[in-house]
Amino acid sequence: MAGVAPGGSGSGSDIYRGNGPRLMLPVWVFIGIFLLLPVILMAVYSFLTKEFRGGVIWDFTLAAYDQFFLNRGLFGDEPATIEWTYIGIFWRSIWQAGLATVFCLLIGFPTAWYVATRPASTRSVWLFLITIPYWVNLLIRTVSMKFLLRDTGPLNEFLMWTGLISDPLSLINTNFAVQVGLFYSYLPFMVLPIYAAVERYDFSLSEAAADLYCNNWTTLRLVILPAVKPGIVAGCILVFVPSLGAFLAPDLLGGAKTFMIGSLIEEQFKGAAGNWPFGAAAAMILLTLVMVVLLIHARVQVREDR
């Protein structure tokens, strides 16, 4: 339930020996054909020529990537300069996702620590309370946040009632609202892996540090944080990666000025100005970014395990 894959590297029991490939066949058929193959096909599409009103012509070209990175003027005859529009959208997405990760960490770490240090009897209830929102429909959660942040919504009403503000704040359609939405969407993803790491933490290390006259905060910095680092890194990845490609939070809480990668890609397939190869290219660039993050993480993990 914590979203951490149990390792499968050990050979374990072998009482059904010889049946492995047969039992795995459905996984290969379904995930292989309906996910791996489509992703490969999408990579091919990013090198095709666009057809107007959606679809593609099977002529190979680099036009989609050219359009993404280079500006050749309105008629394509000027010397190429770097096109900042799409790089800018990616940069904003990386920035927003990074910021959401930092805020999730600031709230998520103390929460995970507190929950993990509860007595065993109440711990599972605490953990359950943190987990529930993770399983509640993301769309409904985002709509709730939209309702809460509206100009005439409960948050503004509350702030005006307390007298902190006299006029409603316009929160919706801002980068701030998108940031709140991302933070809110992925906060449980931060808590769960850190919780798992703290639960495995050996508290005799803290005792040893205390015996050597470390105060609690020094112990946190020098002993605990390095010990639970794998959990923190896992949490950061689980927040950063989905935030980067998020669609609902920027679409429902943001406006035209808060455009993120997810909306850019979606627009190429749904909007009037559909351009499938360009959308496929943007999706490929996003996928590459995510895979780089995951690969670096996997390599560091392997090195530290040694």
């Binding site: 894959a5 292989g32 599409y45 490609g245």
Partner: peptide, 23 residues
Amino acid sequence: SLALINLPLMVPEIVTAVASLIF
């Protein structure tokens, strides 16, 4: 096989969506 089982968790949802539609 284990990597394949976890693949849907690693590919961003928007990418899965686009790839499925194209496929």
